[in-house]
Nucleic acid binder design. Structure first.
Lengths: 142, 142
DNA sequence: TTGATATAGTTACATTCGTAACCATTATTT
DNA sequence: AAATAATGGTTACGAATGTAACTATATCAA
């Protein structure tokens, strides 16, 4: 069958592949060292970076589905890495905050993250790396 | 907590977001029009593009997990879009081939794919689009 | 030739996921 | 104030996933 379509140069396919390649390199770290899922890592990172947040705020920061956030929060709480505190004004809301154990786990993964970032940066070269970042950011407005 | 780490500029995060953005735009098409999953779409596209293949060949072309291919093949077969034919020399092997219905579905999705590609191309501009493709391709060797 | 190893593909099982329904609480309308 | 709607968050359920075990066939080695 003759066609001008080629899966391997189709952007959704290319993007997904590259994304997995890049993501899995780092996933191996949080998965093997801490038995964490991607959702858990993102929730941890967001709380680590912004301090106390509500689940809804984490959703907007990470783009994760709210059930994923709910489940990730639960499991991170299980390991005593975060505590929930009910908001006084609005009792629907739970303020989430890392414990000191959570903060050290975050700090350790941050270091690993920065190292991994540097590895990719070295591979691509500084110019291509920032070009790529810029292009990916631009795609957010697609 | 002060840190030089920022999730939103972390490449695995950026990549994953952009990838979903780009992928979902097209997924809506094969999902809504044909109730297909991504695995099914990829298998269809690969068979459409290369003609008869074995499941293992589809795995190498698509990077899909072999159980995904197995299941996708099964469900595509259910809709009579492909037929299996046992290889005479090696009876472990099943040659997979699209039926004419499968080929028209593929043709239709190709058209949609090309249109979608054009849409992204227009959004990014031709230069950025090819720059991006090149960078993503480069990442395969990470 | 027979026993061990490898390969093609499927299936069982446990886990993860997204949709939708759900509870509890707060805000809005009448 | 009572009824209704909206919001924060969790849960039930079905579908999709990955790992590992499995069947069947083929290859290799002794």
């Amino acid at each position: 069958m003759k066609t001008e379509f080629d899966l391997h140069s189709f952007l959704p396919f290319l993007m997904h592949h590259a994304s997995e390649k890049v993501s899995f390199g780092f996933r191996d770290i949080y998965r093997d060292q801490y038995r964490m899922t991607r959702s858990e890592w993102r929730v941890l990172a967001t709380l680590g970076q912004y301090g106390a947040l509500t689940a809804t705020e984490i959703v907007t920061h990470t783009g994760l589905h709210k059930t994923k956030v709910s489940r990730a929060v639960f499991s991170i709480e299980q390991r005593r890495w975060l505590k929930r505190r009910q908001d006084e004004q609005d009792r629907r809301i739970l303020r989430l905050e890392l414990t000191s154990q959570g903060q050290s786990a975050f700090a350790s993964l941050c270091k690993a993250g920065i190292a991994y970032d540097q590895k990719v940066r070295d591979f691509l070269g500084e110019d291509d790396f920032s070009r790529l970042s810029a292009l990916l950011t631009k795609l957010n407005d697609l």
